[in-house]
Amino acid sequence: MNQIQGTNAFSEKRAKSRITCNFAAIVVGQDEKGREFEENARVVNMSASGIYMLLNRSIGAGEKLSVRIALPTGSLKLGSSKLLTDGNVVRVEPYTTGVMGIAVKFNHYRFR
């Protein structure tokens, strides 16, 4: 067991501002063995240049992915909006629970 001390002393040094979020997403790509997959993921932070998401499978760094992110529409009953992105995996972080943290840099995106 450990105790941790929360701190807000980390400064933002990224080129693009980012937000903490909890958006549902569908990831389409290939796993480390080259097999195609489509799987649900959870985007936990996002900037205009990329996302960090939690996924239940491992993907190799450098792999290409398509991520369809469901944007929240709040109280506006106009149907769900989606952000369709293509990008490359730039970082993979395994968690002890088996979940993988995947950072993706966008190559391009569009709204639908």
């Binding site: 941790i4 701190t7 807000n8 980390f10 501002s17 980012r18 936990v44 972080e93 002890t96 943290g101």
Partner: peptide, 16 residues
């Protein structure tokens, strides 16, 4: 076992 992932989240997901 969760300290590393929590710290990662704290450092990368600063409140706006």
């Amino acid at each position: 076992s969760m300290v590393a992932s929590l710290l990662t989240n704290i450092t990368r997901n600063q409140p706006a």
